[in-house]
Write a protein that binds this DNA or RNA. Structure first.
Lengths: 134, 134
DNA sequence: CTGTATCCTTAGGGATACTG
DNA sequence: CAGTATCCCTAAGGATACAG
């Protein structure tokens, strides 16, 4: 599940070895933009992740300390998944990917006001997010 | 080889569908930072990409117009691979990944001056790169 | 409903042979 | 040397059954 075969010490290569798959960043996205925190929330994202993959990725993200997993005090037998600071630090990567994906795809689903906001307030957004997890 | 099964219209998901693999961005990196442009150059990167994968990814990158492939006028039977504007626009993603990978990995191989430069001159670097391909 | 495990298919990728 | 093709193995991932 978790691959530790890092290919080189280039930081880019390291990053790709850890989060260079098709699902991890989508989960992070859901946490950030949709405020999702429960297993079922993630299952219902529009990309329809399979339940075994979700389980697998949550473990991987947790093992890399991108997220924390704590018992829901209201509902035992349920867990809350939350971003850690290390996870929030992926936000800039996310934003750049969103900007790129939007720029080069006509069918991008995001309203242009939001894209404008990202372009303008990128650093501010990162900051706010950091504050919000403390 | 080239997957067109896009999972959703979220720009992040779109981006991941196109360049969310372990090799494409490394090739782009070599083009930008190492000024590599020949097949053999890419083969010799420190991550030791297999020749069939390299061939495959170059085609994929070309099919998505990230790079152009032109005959070398000096040496027939040799091609020059070059970044297009669309490819250069991946640079911000690259930079954020480099910063992240460096921040969270002690064995990152990049000198800290370079990391500082990226942090400070990110936008400037993108600009210069854009100019250099015209 | 929250997950995990299992089965199975396909895609990614390594080694290497091969062609111009 | 530049690049493609083949062989084969492993990892990624979908479907679905199953357990708490």
């Amino acid at each position: 599940m978790k691959k530790n075969n890092c290919r080189s010490n280039c930081p880019l290569s390291i990053t790709l070895d850890i989060i260079g798959d098709k699902w991890s960043l989508l989960i992070i996205r859901d946490m950030i933009f949709m405020k999702k925190k429960y297993y079922g929330d993630f299952l219902n994202s529009s990309e329809k992740i399979a339940t075994n993959i979700l389980s697998n990725r949550l473990k991987s993200l947790e093992s890399h300390s991108f997220i924390t997993k704590t018992k829901d005090s209201n509902n035992r037998s349920k867990f809350i998944y939350q971003l850690s600071k290390k996870g929030v630090d992926l936000f800039p990567i996310l934003l750049e990917m969103i900007l790129w994906g939007d720029k080069y795809n006509d069918n991008s689903s995001l309203p242009s006001e939001f894209i404008q906001k990202i372009k303008k307030d990128k650093d501010k957004m990162v900051h706010e997010l950091l504050n919000s997890i403390n």
